[in-house]
Each structure stands twice: as C-alpha cells, then as structure tokens.
Simulated scan of single mutants.
Amino acid sequence: MKNVLMSDNGVDSANRVVDLRDLYNEEDPFRLGPTYVSAYRSRLNANLAFFDGLDGKTDWTTQPDGTHPLTDLLLADFLVVDAAKPYAEDSYFEIERALLEGEAHTTCGGRSLNDDAIDTLYTLIVNAFHGPRVSDGVDQATMPASREFPYLPQPNLDPPEPVSVPTADASQ
C-alpha cells in the first residue's frame, strides 16, 4: 500500500529528492521515528489530495493547513481487527471506514486472503466510497484462497510466461 501512497507523483513539493518508500518501510508502524515523520505527512497530504482529484471532484476536505483526513489513518500502517464481530470476505477498511463516517462497524475488519485490497484502497482514496468502485484491472487471484485451513491454494501449475525485458547491449 505504501508503494502507491508514498510514491513520488510530482505533487509533493517539499520532498522531491528522497524516495520515502524504503525509509517508511523500515519504520515501526506503531512508533514512527521523529526523523522523517514530517516528510511522510507531507507526501501523504500531497498524494492523497492528488488521488482524490483523479475523478474530477473532491470527496475529502483537507484542513486549512493542508492535512488530508486520511493522512493519520494511513500513516498508521496497520489494520484493526475486532474479533467480537463476524468475519466478512470483503471487510478491508470496514472498521476504519465506519470510524470516518461516524458509524458503528459491523464486521471484524482486517483483510481476507481473497479481498481485492487494491481496488478498496483506490476507491477509498479516489472517491471516499461515494462513487463507483475504482479498479486496478485485476479482480481476483489466479488461484483463490480456500475458506478452509490451510487456506492457501496449491501452486499454479500453469503460470503465465515471464515477460522478457529488453536490456542494453553493453558491447555497443
């Protein structure tokens, strides 16, 4: 998720020199160190505003200082799970979404193995779930996970052929 949210889209004027993704991924998500936290916030504020505008309208109102409403939520890079609530296959961000809307959550939250998490993330940041689902074009795994232990499917015996990438000929 942070590779999308912390990428340099050219909209963060304060932090264009440093790729923050690796720095952020080295952090403890429960206790971000003080060295780069303002850079992370700046990047998220800029990128979240950028993503919100991709559909031509603003669904998230930033604070007067430019802070995006999702910055603190997404800066805390962990999911909350409520084991007292029922499981749902598509519960990714359900607890966080309910919190943002001032409602009670109805599922355990978290993320299931078959959840289309990227589409959910894109829909959250682009239209705040107030519009159509935003898709990355990949709707499911080639081999969906089982709903019974051990959950993971058998290896794909017919994987796609690797794409060859042209390389520069060093002898020329």
Rank of each mutant, 00 (worst) to 15 (best):
M1N: 13
V4L: 09
M6C: 04
S7W: 04
S7A: 14
S7V: 10
S7K: 14
D12K: 01
D12Y: 00
A14Q: 08
A14H: 02
A14S: 14
N15W: 01
R16A: 14
V17Q: 08
D19S: 05
D19I: 03
L20A: 02
D22K: 13
D22Y: 15
L23Q: 08
Y24Q: 02
Y24P: 12
Y24N: 02
N25H: 11
N25M: 13
N25W: 15
D28V: 04
R31H: 10
L32D: 01
L32N: 05
L32I: 04
P34G: 10
T35R: 10
Y36I: 07
Y36S: 06
V37W: 09
V37P: 12
S38H: 11
R41D: 05
S42W: 00
L44V: 12
A46M: 09
L48Q: 07
F50D: 08
F50W: 07
D52V: 05
D52C: 04
G53H: 01
L54F: 01
L54I: 04
G56K: 05
K57L: 12
D59N: 14
T61G: 10
T61L: 12
T62V: 15
Q63Y: 13
P64F: 00
G66V: 02
T67M: 08
T67I: 08
H68C: 05
P69Q: 03
P69E: 01
D72F: 11
D72M: 13
D72A: 12
L73F: 10
A76E: 08
D77H: 12
D77W: 01
F78P: 00
F78T: 00
V80W: 02
V81N: 08
D82F: 15
A83P: 06
A83F: 14
A84F: 09
A88C: 07
A88Y: 04
D90N: 06
D90K: 07
Y92L: 13
F93A: 10
E94N: 10
E94A: 12
I95T: 01
E96R: 02
E96W: 06
A98Y: 14
L99G: 04
L99H: 15
H105F: 15
T106D: 06
T107Y: 00
T107L: 03
G109E: 06
G109I: 09
L113A: 08
L113N: 06
D115R: 09
D115K: 06
D116W: 00
D116T: 07
A117S: 08
I118N: 03
I118K: 07
D119F: 13
L121H: 05
L121I: 15
Y122W: 04
Y122E: 00
T123L: 01
T123P: 00
T123K: 01
T123V: 01
I125C: 02
V126Y: 10
N127A: 01
N127S: 01
H130L: 11
G131I: 00
G131R: 06
P132L: 14
P132S: 10
P132F: 10
V134D: 03
D136I: 11
D136R: 13
D139M: 14
Q140A: 13
T142M: 14
T142Q: 11
M143V: 07
P144E: 08
P144M: 14
A145C: 09
S146L: 04
R147D: 15
F149G: 12
Y151H: 09
P153R: 14
Q154C: 09
P155K: 06
P155Y: 00
N156K: 10
N156G: 07
L157D: 11
L157T: 07
P159W: 03
E161A: 12
E161Q: 13
E161H: 11
V165H: 07
T167F: 12
A170I: 10
Q172K: 15
